[in-house]
Simulated scan of single mutants.
Amino acid sequence: MKDFNLAQETCQWAIRDVGGLDVLINLLDTEEIKCKIGSLKILKEISRNSQIRSAIADLGGLQTMVKILDSPAKDLRSLAAETIGNVAKFRRARRTVRQYGGIKRLVRLLDCAPIRSANLTADQEKDIEVARCGALALWSCSKSTRNKEAIRKAGGIPLLARLLKSPHANMLIPVVGILQECASEPTYRLAIKTERMIEDIVKNLTSENEELQMHCASAIFKALFMPKCWCWDLSYHIASNKSCS
């Protein structure tokens, strides 16, 4: 199946119409790691299609993928989290992830050792990938108000603050994306202040990655709904960053 162009809708419909989704989701319940990895690689690609996402949710695929987040295999956790991120683009799917304990598990994926260097070992790269995929899934889930609160209660805020210091743009984009979504809530605006995240968000405005710049600017915009005294503090950090002045 992976030999086909999974980005083409005709291939996606063909997989669904011949019962391929049922088979792929059933493979996730096997004990064979290679079967699970192969299945998730396909599901990750075809779940970019909105109708396929809905079908995966209807077949109970999200519940199974949430369980896989506990797997000791890092590759499995990464693929499951990224696929959850693709599927959780609509309200019912986001609710399912929360109801089956997915938010707590995804937050745990963010807990990797602080890595400031751009030169990583193979094991460190896997840890970063697990955290990145966890952040991607939480970014999708954070569009729900209840999920924002669930992320906070699961201890996500200090972990996001730590990941915000990463030198890797592909990590920073989903992390800032989560903060951008959650900054609409007063508790998160307070956390952005107390965890000193403003400085890191402002620094990333100078990134060469335009998508990262865009999300940082949006997060700052939402942070401007803070009380005036905090807005002055935010303005100070922006003004004091010479490269952004």
Rank of each mutant, 00 (worst) to 15 (best):
N5P: 00
Q8S: 07
E9T: 12
C11I: 15
W13V: 14
W13H: 12
R16S: 14
R16N: 05
G20C: 08
E32F: 01
L43S: 11
I46L: 04
I52M: 04
Q63N: 13
K67N: 11
I68V: 12
L76Y: 01
L79K: 00
I84H: 02
R91A: 11
A93W: 11
R94P: 08
T96G: 01
V97G: 08
G101V: 07
K104Q: 04
R105N: 05
V107A: 02
A113K: 15
I115P: 04
T121W: 06
Q124W: 03
E129P: 00
G134D: 10
A135M: 03
A137T: 04
L138F: 00
W139H: 12
S140E: 13
S142F: 01
E149C: 02
L159R: 02
A161C: 11
A161M: 10
R162L: 12
H168A: 00
A169W: 00
N170S: 13
L172V: 12
I173M: 10
I173H: 06
I173W: 12
V176C: 12
G177F: 03
C182K: 02
T187D: 14
A191Y: 06
A191D: 10
T194C: 06
E195V: 01
I198K: 01
E199M: 02
D200S: 14
V202S: 03
K203Y: 09
N204F: 15
S207W: 08
E210V: 10
L212F: 10
C216M: 11
W230D: 15
S235C: 14
Y236L: 13
H237E: 15
H237A: 13
H237C: 13
N241Q: 13
C244E: 07
S245K: 09
